[in-house]
Design a protein around this nucleic acid. Structure first.
Lengths: 228, 228
DNA sequence: GACGGAACTCTTGTATACAATCGGCGCACG
DNA sequence: CGTGCGCCGATTGTATACAAGAGTTCCGTC
């Protein structure tokens, strides 16, 4: 049995640890640059250092933390150039997914996509950034899966995860929520039409570094980078 | 210090182990599906099981091996659909690199790119598939780096590594060597011209699943899949 | 003779013990 | 008083010991 791309959700202590710590990072409960003490985590989760180390290795492999030899683990704190590279890579991967999704999604998938789009509406109307972020993620995930390529979808998810601590900053303004929702609509239409090039282009514009979303993001960034 | 994308070449036993085992896999010295015994590797490398396990975790994170809970590690043995997904993802990532490289590489980079292209010639003339493969890798790596995006380059490298055990099959025929070399020339020309769309398209055609290269690859595959 | 089950063995997962290196602190010296 | 060196504590890296689950084999039964 060869599972490709999927996150290996084993049943060991190490796997649970991994997801627990990951949660703390992507939700921002532990800040970028913050130290992750092995012994501390061990007592906190009631296990020995061994599974803790395994979890940290895994997080480092996905770029969520940085593991410096003999100097311990810290939550990854990318510089602004790093963040630009991450967003750019994200753009490439997401637009690739969108293109393939346009080629491969079929009627039922389209229906589900529109469902997920409509599910974003309440959050837009309420101006609830957190709720919108979650609904937005589900929509994007549907596109990843719609690409019909577990490898590409896996890499894209990994990147999204890596950016998660910063992504929420993008959606602070009600104006951006509205724009994002409209962009989703155009994207879904392109996918439904099976127009691969258009879908690629619209996804690119949606998450790309040349869009206003990223500019807004950068504008809000310094506050958090000072903290690290 | 936040190194992004780069393989963490630490100085621990674990890191050395990791690269040693990785070598065995990508060069095909250990076949897909083959079991990797922790204790065996430990005695073979003169270390305890702990660093061995760390190395295996890392390899699993990169998809080179499969780690089944309580059942040990085996070299990844993707099915044909898996391989198609891997190649397709590779196509997307490589063409993205090519596009960015077209936008960002400058004169000295172009010169180096042509140097690497010329360095492929002897192997083409000699019909030496292994030598050509190595020179070919160096050329592609130059494109990854030329993209100026360590994240994208890192993901692309990881994928290439994952496919390495199978890639050599593509280059068995002298005819393919010649074709590949010509495709490289066209690619380099597009990059030098700064034509992003053209570079993307040519890279896509070069590594893509619709090309004859992949067809040849599939045709040669059954022999090796039977072995696993 | 074939099939099912239970004990055994082997391997993995986790905990603990030991060793080596890094950062911090204090002291001597300029 | 500022700076550099050496010792000490703390933390990581590795080894070993222990526990638990999976695969296997052998035997009893049908």
């Amino acid at each position: 049995m060869y599972t490709i791309g999927a996150r290996s959700t084993g049943h060991h202590a190490a796997s649970d640890l991994r997801t627990a710590i990951e949660e703390d990072i992507v939700t921002g409960r532990v800040a970028p640059g913050e130290r992750l003490d092995e012994a501390g985590l061990a007592v906190r989760f009631g296990v020995s250092r061994t599974p803790v180390r395994e979890a940290l290795q895994g997080l480092a492999a996905d770029g969520l933390i940085t593991l410096r030899p003999r100097r311990g683990a810290v939550v990854a704190s990318p510089t602004i150039p790093d963040l630009m590279a991450l967003f750019e890579a994200m753009t490439e991967l997401e637009s690739a997914c969108a293109g393939l999704a346009a080629r491969r999604m079929e009627a039922p998938d389209h229906a589900r996509l529109w469902d997920l789009w409509r599910a974003c509406l309440p959050a837009v109307r309420a101006g609830d950034a957190d709720a919108y972020y979650d609904a937005n993620v589900r929509l994007h995930e549907a596109v990843y899966d719609g690409a019909g390529n577990p490898v590409l979808a896996g890499d894209t998810r990994r990147l999204r995860n890596r950016l998660a601590p910063y992504r929420r900053l993008q959606l602070r303004s009600p104006r951006r929520l509205l724009a994002s929702h409209a962009e989703h609509e155009a994207l879904a239409a392109a996918i439904e039409a099976g127009d691969e090039a258009l879908a690629r282009g619209r996804m690119r514009g949606h998450v790309g570094v040349q869009g206003e979303a990223f500019t807004d993001f950068l504008a809000r960034l310094p506050d958090t980078l000072r903290a690290g």
